[in-house]
Design a protein around this nucleic acid. Structure first.
Lengths: 213, 213
DNA sequence: CAGCTTTCGCTACGAGACGTAGCGTAATAC
DNA sequence: GTATTACGCTACGTCTCGTAGCGAAAGCTG
């Protein structure tokens, strides 16, 4: 887990960058996202909230996009995958955690906005992948390995196939929760998580009654 | 299918609004999205491209958000659901169509941006639901009815349960394709659509060989 | 046809955010 | 102690925003 803040290069001569300023700026960014949202958030305002000069902010981040990515990425690091005994329970748990993060206004407006910007900015897209997407894929990999240990899921043929499946599951889980929460704009509550998990594990063809409802 | 353009109120006295200006403005908006993307798109630029005055544009749309929603919504009306004989084939087909639209830059940057803005703007969220989400849910409903006619899927108990399932499927399909295309930033090609459809229909527990890769 | 109503294009404007430059000062490494 | 870098502050030109005001154009209405 390397530091991803702009204050990374040590060993140089001269006055080192204030690490406290980093955390203050990122916290101020999240606070501004809550109060103002993405479009009305200005770097001058963030600097004022953080108690630093605007120029200091520009020395560390190229612009608004990168700053918000860093600020939002920290939110998703809270995700965990406690062992609940079954694959279904594990999935429901992580879905609920993910949904809880997306309830927070600083995540809602920030995440979608930077993804939108990333459609025209390769460097920004790489930053999102590195700090958010790839970091959280660990959850899928761990849950899958756990299920295979339990005998719930078969092992893959080869590593490439395994990576493909992990990517697919990640897109399905994250995509569905994000779409439900932000586009359909309805809560991904326990009922929804249960229905989603059922379809993900058993498929639409499954007409079973157990755990029905 | 009612007109959703700002030029809707007929029967009034005085000079009617130019319908040609509406289409010119929406086309200019999409063109500007392609060249500039969301963040650098300005209403002055759109007005110039469309050959209308900036004030005319402001008389018809409240702002950038609403304009882009209307411009992007027209893209998704192209979606169709030709009968391919089986539920799996139908899903793969609509996934590929949806992915094809999301390949276009005017859809990529525009869609995510307005969704981001909608997280803090109830009216905008309602506009997106009316013009994009609810309009395209017809695809899920039709595909589901078709599959039930074929005997591939059982009928629901009641209407409320049916609506819930439609919502869930819509979030899963649209969410997964959007996430794959815009967040993971990889193509939702035929291979991916096949794997996705298989999981959606049969679930992760299914270890079957038939049609395997 | 005359008259009324509404839209249109144009110009201009104050407000606000952007991103940068320059300066003197503060804090650390060597 | 000295070199080096970060910091806070101020100021600036540039751009976009959204609105106001005007005269002219284009239809409905009787």
């Amino acid at each position: 887990m390397q530091s991803r803040s702009p204050t990374g290069r040590a060993g140089r001569a001269g006055r080192p960058r204030s690490a406290a300023a980093d955390t203050a700026i990122l916290a101020a960014t999240r606070a501004a996202l809550v109060e103002l949202g993405w479009s009305k958030l200005t770097l001058g305002d963030v600097a004022a909230r953080a108690g630093v000069a605007k120029t200091t902010l520009y020395r560390r981040w190229p612009g608004k996009n990168e700053l918000v990515v860093d600020a939002v990425a920290e939110l998703f690091d809270e995700l965990e995958l406690p062992d609940r005994g079954s694959l279904a329970a594990d999935i429901e748990g992580v879905v609920r955690q993910f949904a809880a993060i997306l309830e927070r206004p600083e995540a809602r407006s920030g995440l979608m906005a930077v993804v939108a910007e990333a459609t025209r900015d390769d460097a920004l897209r790489a930053r999102i992948r590195a700090l958010i997407v790839d970091r959280q894929k660990r959850l899928v990999r761990e849950g899958r390995a756990r299920a295979q240990r339990r005998g719930e899921l078969p092992a893959e043929r080869d590593a490439r196939q395994a990576a493909r499946v992990v990517d697919l599951i990640f897109d399905m889980v994250a995509g569905a929760v994000v779409h439900r929460t932000l586009v359909s704009a309805e809560a991904a509550d326990e009922d929804w998580a249960r229905g989603f998990t059922r379809v993900l594990l058993c498929g639409l063809f499954d007409t079973g009654a157990p755990g029905d409802r």
